[in-house]
Amino acid sequence: MSFQIECPECGCRPVGEFHFGGAVRERPEPAAGDHVWAEYVYTRPNIAGVQREWWFHRAACKQWFIASRDTRSNVMQPAQTPDSQEARG
């Protein structure tokens, strides 16, 4: 893994400066039931293709942002700051 990530604050930096936060997913409603919750808590999608995911620039600006990455090639689309999209979590 030696690709680079475009941080919205700091620009293009090596991936080692970032912390991967997993695919962007919808947190279930509190009453969604054990099955839905177990799925959310214990399984990860792990798709082969373009995926929206969280990245944290831990070594510099300490910002979380969402970027799309093709998991097959590690080619990334420009990142968005979380403010620019609807809230989730």
Binding site: F56, A87, R88
Partner: peptide
């Protein structure tokens, strides 16, 4: 450091 990132993540996910 881990808790810093943990708080920031939840805050980023709830920008309102």
């Amino acid at each position: 450091a881990a808790i810093d990132s943990w708080f920031r993540w939840w805050l980023a996910a709830r920008p309102g």
